[in-house]
Amino acid sequence: MGTIAERLKIALKTIEQSACEANRPANSVKLLAVTKTKPVSDIVQAYEAGHRLFGENYVQEGVDKIQQLKALNDIEWHFIGPLQSNKTRPVAENFDWVHSIDRLKIAQRLNDQRSAHKRLNICIQVNIDNEASKAGASLSEVESLAAHISKLPNLTLRGLMTIPKVQEDLNLQRQSLLAMSKCFAQLQTKYPQIDTLSMGMSSDMPLAIECGSTMVRVGSAIFGARQ
């Protein structure tokens, strides 16, 4: 399996190669290392290998890790899991990014609970394939949600996130990813600060990069299978 540092290097190389194959700059896609259920020691190993972007799915687990690693103050913490309204405060107070905003109520609460000294970066989660089992706004709701979030003074709208349906036919998955890319491009014409299209994981990373992803979320390929 190799060490975390070695697997991290392989993931970064795969991203670089996928970007080049898509005729994109090698540095146009960021790697978000997903550390849910993994111990703090794993994060430290990745940090010591030079990585700084980490994603957590569970509020309390993420906050605990942030507190334990407070001395490593150049880590950028991303909350990528579903967020209930009764758990917005610790996210607003501790994380740098939230990828999973799918309704205005959650965005409003994060805004109200965030310190005015440092804005919270926001991605709207889109349920691109309208799956009943997944959270996310529909494509038709994105424009209105973006308009409202962009007016909240303690938040900065940075882009979109999605988890597309796993398809045996790659062309069907490509269609979903390209629809996200089109929506992202349309938003960028209205909001110049938008720069992040968070899509793609270990299983579909090259395809997501081909379709315009600027940030991929990778966990098990770096840290091993979850328990």
Rank of each mutant, 00 (worst) to 15 (best):
S198W: 01
K65T: 09
V216Y: 07
I66V: 14
I149E: 06
I122Y: 12
Q68I: 12
K13N: 12
W77S: 07
I43M: 05
K38M: 10
K65D: 10
M1Q: 08
V142R: 05
I43W: 07
S115L: 06
V63M: 12
N27H: 12
A107L: 07
D74N: 12
P206E: 06
K9V: 10
S28I: 15
Q60F: 05
K151F: 03
E48Q: 15
L160A: 01
K30E: 15
N121S: 15
C20H: 00
A135Y: 13
L170G: 10
R158H: 06
S144E: 09
Q175E: 13
M215N: 01
N121I: 05
E143L: 10
V166D: 04
Q60M: 10
E56R: 06
T35F: 00
S220T: 14
N171Q: 08
E168V: 09
A146R: 00
L157Y: 14
Y47T: 03
L53S: 03
H78S: 00
P82S: 08
D42C: 13
T35I: 08
K134C: 08
A208R: 00
N94Q: 12
R24Q: 09
A33G: 03
F54W: 01
E48H: 14
P164F: 05
A208V: 07
L157C: 13
E143T: 11
K65Q: 02
A208D: 04
G2L: 04
I80A: 08
V40F: 06
K65G: 10
S213P: 08
H99G: 07
G219R: 05
K118N: 11
S133D: 11
E21Y: 09
R103A: 06
Q60E: 13
L104D: 06
T37L: 09
S100D: 00
L177H: 00
R24C: 09
C20E: 02
L170I: 12
R114F: 11
I209Q: 01
Y47A: 01
P90C: 00
L69F: 12
V59T: 14
C20M: 05
T88D: 04
E210M: 04
G212E: 03
I4F: 00
G224C: 03
E131L: 11
E48L: 14
T156N: 10
Q84N: 11
L72F: 13
R89C: 06
A49F: 15
L177T: 08
F95G: 04
V34T: 03
D42A: 14
G212A: 04
T3P: 13
R52S: 03
A107R: 06
P192T: 04
R52T: 05
Q193S: 13
L12A: 11
L72R: 11
Q68D: 12
E131Q: 15
K165C: 14
P39Y: 02
I101P: 13
W77V: 01
K190R: 13
V44C: 02
G50Y: 09
V218E: 03
E76T: 15
L170M: 08
T88A: 06
D169Q: 07
M199C: 06
L157E: 11
S203T: 07
S220E: 13
H117Q: 07
R109G: 03
